[in-house]
Deep mutational scan, measured.
Amino acid sequence: ELSWTAEAEKMLGKVPFFVRKKVRKNTDNYAREIGEPVVTADVFRKAKEHLG
């Protein structure tokens, strides 16, 4: 699991709890794919757009 900024964690907190774990995993995987060592708010937004 990658490191997350406080802002990205806050955004994740707005995701319904029953899918939060999956969203975190998918976002981590997306960040790795694009070469990001940390999940930022920008990476979170891009993952959301990319993953739907």
Rank of each mutant, 00 (worst) to 15 (best):
E9W: 14
A41Y: 05
D28R: 03
I34Y: 08
V38P: 00
K14P: 03
K10L: 13
M11R: 03
I34P: 01
M11P: 00
F18R: 13
A8Y: 00
T27D: 00
A47R: 04
H50Y: 13
A6I: 12
K25L: 14
E36N: 05
E36C: 08
T40R: 02
E1H: 11
V39H: 01
G52T: 13
G13R: 15
N26K: 13
T40A: 02
A6L: 12
A6C: 08
G52I: 13
D42S: 08
A6K: 11
N29D: 13
V43H: 02
E33L: 13
D28H: 04
A41D: 05
L2W: 04
K25S: 10
T40G: 03
K25R: 14
K48F: 14
R20L: 04
R20S: 03
K21V: 11
A31Y: 00
V43I: 12
R24E: 03
A31I: 02
K21A: 15
V23H: 05
E36T: 08
N26T: 11
F44M: 04
L12N: 01
E7W: 04
T27E: 00
K25Y: 13
Y30V: 03
A47W: 12
A31K: 01
P37Y: 12
G52Q: 14
E33G: 09
L2Q: 05
E33N: 09
G35F: 05
W4A: 01
W4F: 00
W4Y: 01
P37W: 12
R45Y: 06
E7S: 06
K22Y: 14
T5A: 04
H50C: 07
K25C: 08
A31E: 00
V23G: 01
N26P: 01
V15N: 03
E33A: 14
V15A: 05
E33M: 15
E7G: 06
K22D: 09
P16G: 04
L2V: 10
K14M: 12
D28N: 12
S3W: 11
E36L: 07
M11F: 05
R45A: 09
G52A: 14
L2D: 02
L51G: 10
V39A: 01
K46Y: 05
A41E: 07
F44E: 00
H50Q: 09
R32Y: 06
A31F: 01
E49P: 06
G52E: 13
W4I: 00
G13V: 08
E33D: 10
F18T: 09
K10P: 00
H50I: 10
L2S: 04
V23F: 09
E36K: 05
T27C: 08
G52K: 14
T27I: 15
T27N: 02
L2E: 03
A8F: 01
E33C: 15
K21H: 14
D42A: 09
S3G: 08
V39P: 00
V23D: 02
A6T: 09
K22L: 14
R20H: 03
S3D: 09
R20A: 04
V15W: 08
R45G: 05
H50M: 11
K14Y: 08
E33Y: 12
Y30M: 03
E7Q: 07
R32M: 08
E36M: 08
S3Q: 13
E7V: 05
K48W: 15
F17A: 11
K14H: 08
K48D: 06
E1R: 13
V39R: 00
N29L: 12
G35W: 03
F17T: 08
R24N: 02
V43Y: 02
R24L: 04
P16Q: 05
N29F: 09
A47D: 01
K48E: 09
F18M: 10
A41P: 07
A47C: 06
E9V: 11
L12S: 01
P37L: 14
G52V: 12
K48M: 15
F17M: 11
W4V: 00
E36W: 06
E49Q: 12
L51A: 10
E49H: 12
R32K: 09
G35M: 06
K48Y: 14
V23E: 03
N26M: 15
R45I: 11
A31D: 01
R45N: 09
A31H: 00
F18S: 11
V43G: 02
E49Y: 12
T5K: 02
A31N: 00
G35N: 08
K14C: 09
F18Q: 11
R24G: 02
T5G: 03
R32C: 05
R24I: 04
V43C: 03
V23T: 07
T5P: 00
H50L: 11
K14N: 10
P37C: 11
V19I: 14
V39K: 00
E9D: 05
A31Q: 00
V23R: 04
F17K: 10
D28I: 08
K21T: 12
K10F: 12
V39C: 02
D28K: 02
G13Y: 12
D42T: 08
V15F: 12
D42K: 07
M11Q: 06
T40Y: 01
V19S: 13
K48I: 14
K22M: 14
R32G: 04
L12Q: 01
A47K: 02
T40P: 01
G13T: 10
P37T: 14
V39M: 02
K22N: 10
K10M: 13
V15P: 02
F44K: 01
K46R: 12
E49F: 11
K14G: 07
Y30P: 00
E7T: 06
F18V: 10
K21I: 12
D28S: 07
A8M: 00
P37E: 11
V15M: 12
E49K: 14
R20Q: 06
F17V: 09
F18G: 11
T40M: 01
A41C: 06
E33F: 12
P16N: 06
S3I: 14
N26S: 11
P16I: 04
V43N: 02
E49A: 13
H50F: 12
K46F: 05
E1C: 11
K25W: 14
Y30K: 02
D28V: 08
F18C: 14
K25T: 13
K46E: 08
V38M: 10
K46G: 07
E7P: 05
L2I: 14
V23K: 02
V23L: 10
G35I: 02
D28E: 15
N29I: 11
F17Q: 08
N26E: 15
T5R: 02
V19L: 15
G52P: 08
M11I: 06
K14E: 14
A47F: 13
I34A: 08
K22V: 14
E7K: 07
G52S: 13
V15G: 02
K48S: 14
N29Y: 09
V39T: 02
R32I: 08
V23A: 05
T5V: 03
A8H: 01
V19P: 03
V38K: 07
L2T: 06
A41N: 04
K21L: 14
K10E: 14
A8S: 04
K21R: 13
E1F: 12
I34T: 09
V19R: 13
G35Y: 04
F18W: 15
E33T: 10
A6E: 13
K25A: 12
N29M: 13
M11C: 06
K25Q: 14
A6D: 11
I34Q: 10
T27S: 04
K46W: 09
E1S: 12
E7M: 06
E36H: 07
T40Q: 02
T5N: 05
L12H: 01
P37R: 11
E49D: 10
W4G: 01
K14F: 08
F44Y: 10
V39N: 00
K46H: 07
